[in-house]
Design a binder for these strands. Structure first.
Lengths: 339, 339
DNA sequence: CACCCAGCTGGGAGCGCTCCCAGGAAGACT
DNA sequence: AGTCTTCCTGGGAGCGCTCCCAGCTGGGTG
């Protein structure tokens, strides 16, 4: 029927007129401020519903300098982001953390290098009150620049480029350490690892943990291959690892998805898991339960990561002082059949 | 060092002063409008970079009544959304469809029933220029109300509550039909289906297609069980289907994730796929390739769904006339081992 | 009866921007 | 020399809201 022709944006003024009061009073009602008589409050409420008044956010933002929305920035091509259970979990956590705060979540992804400026501009031009930045490859300068521009930022995952941007991360180092210790405790003699990319903190930290455990046990720490976070890459990495170190009988994979790829490769070669080679993954994603055999893995509290980060950001926005600059969340070994 | 204390928001005015020109000229430069001398243009550009000027979006939106961002609304608890490859693909498509349009993608999910109003308010209060709404269970009124409020909306997936809101969807009916025909062509005699929820168009349309194919072949169409889109639900549905119709030797599952659950159940009962029971899924998600045996499935062009929807919305925003109200995208049978 | 204070109310100013229109400068014609 | 274009420029008005301050009522107090 109505083809959206009517775009007659109702304003505060009109509501005020309809309710027989002033702009100020209507504003007070809308923002739930005290100092309005019951009569006026009701008249305004009625006028608002009958006129279907919706406040103009732009006008409000202009004067309040707040937007009541926060950004989650994923500096990764959209492709990767979804389907990745890690992002999924973090986002769920953020969503939960926002809870009743009445703030909106705005998800942004840099769709390439080119739009990096667009992104930065968007964030700095007052569209959001703060930002959560997830997964930065290497020494991404974005967070630093946002902070310099005065935007409150909290990172999910330790950044490589130190900076002083607060972050929340899983205790990846301890996770790697526990995984390696578990393999040692199984009596495995030659323990390798398929580490993550060496330009990401997760990759590095888990590797360091693994190394420390082997070092503590006076074992060699040379059986290392790096891999991207994908099944294919995991399979290729396993192949390479086996080529270079045919004697490995246990592997710590820096992610479940890598572990799954590795297991697929092993099975294609007739190598039995865990009999011939034991495997420990990392994440405890659905992949771990779906894999055959089910994957022994280091669980990281993904959802909590998102929740905690959000809490940290909201606290900062609320002007809280003495916040912990950064936070590490504990990991936990989950025993299944692969190791 | 600088603890973000300086929040000295540089304004157009200041840039103008620094460049020795007027507000108007600066504005023209920023918006890349003609009618500015090279000299002025350069002076302004320099002032902008040296002052690190960033335009205030709120102020701009207030007067232009545009925000250059569009919302993707997922009316589903955040939990579900991520990890679901369908959403992932759609979002990727949207992201790609936005391409060079210089519009930002804002992802919103209704985190429950309570915040339904918050969501609607957010959308209607000028935060976005248009909205893409994905996955509505049943007769969701949100899209209708958004349209009534004057917001351009395009849906991903046919809504049940007809309305006249434009949508883009896969040709689910033909997909179901082709799946069933394939099972018939294999010589299977008793073909069942695990349909999707009967309050969702995808569930209904695929079921109708399946029914038509069997009807055309004069086969019974009573072996139907409904299921939610999850592995567990798929497994339970398979159990129920088998209980009620022990003679089925082929099953069309309305989604890969259901098919995987069904296969897991069958395997746990020692039923062989495809020898004893052939299975066809729907979606052609990663699950289909990962499953053992790999799943024969109906591919739907998920990413294209997102891309097309975005294109449709952008065209509408650009004021294009005579747009097709709704669009159906073809599906395709992918043969693997499960049927 | 004068006074005061609390409780409400209304209007002005201004947030930072875009849009419109009136002008000025410079060149090209009568 | 005068006029008309063309190109560029500057300033006013106003988008819809919040915030501040001044005013207006009415009941309590000295």
């Amino acid at each position: 029927m109505s083809e959206a022709i009517d775009r007659a944006p109702v304003t505060l003024e009109e509501v005020a007129r309809a309710a027989g009061v002033s702009r100020s009073t209507v504003s007070r009602v809308i923002n739930d401020l005290p100092g309005v008589s019951k009569r006026a409050r009701e008249a305004v409420a009625e006028a608002i519903t009958s006129l279907r008044y919706v406040p103009n956010q732009a006008a409000r933002n202009l004067v309040t300098r707040r937007t009541d929305s926060i950004a989650v920035v994923v500096s990764e091509k959209g492709d990767q982001v979804f389907g990745d259970p890690f992002f999924a979990g973090v986002l769920r956590g953020v969503s939960a953390g926002l809870g009743t705060s009445h703030k909106q979540l705005v998800l942004l992804m840099s769709q390439g290098d080119a739009d990096r400026d667009t992104l930065e501009n968007y964030l700095c031009s007052g569209h959001v009150d703060g930002a959560i930045v997830v997964s930065l490859h290497g020494n991404d300068l974005l967070p630093r620049r946002l902070v310099d521009a005065g935007l409150p930022v909290v990172l999910v995952g330790r950044p490589l480029a130190g900076g002083s941007v607060p972050y929340v991360d899983s205790d990846n180092l301890t996770g790697g350490l526990v995984a390696a210790r578990h393999l040692l405790s199984l009596g495995r003699s030659r323990i390798g690892t398929i580490a993550g990319p060496d330009d990401m903190a997760v990759g590095i930290d888990r590797l360091i943990g693994w190394r420390r455990a082997l070092g503590d046990a006076k074992r060699p720490t040379d059986a290392v291959v790096h891999s991207r976070f994908s099944i294919d890459a995991g399979a290729r990495a396993m192949e390479e690892l086996l080529e270079r170190h045919p004697d490995v009988d246990a592997v710590f994979a820096a992610a479940d998805i890598i572990a799954v790829g590795a297991m697929q490769f092993l099975q294609s070669r007739g190598v039995r898991v865990p009999e011939d080679i034991a495997i420990v993954g990392f994440d405890d994603s659905v992949l771990a339960t779906m894999a055959s055999p089910p994957l022994t893995t280091v669980r990281q509290p993904v959802e909590e990561l998102g929740r905690t980060t959000t809490w940290r950001l909201l606290a900062q926005l609320a002007g809280e002082r003495h916040l912990p600059p950064s936070i590490l969340l504990p990991t936990e070994l989950i025993l299944r059949s692969s190791a």
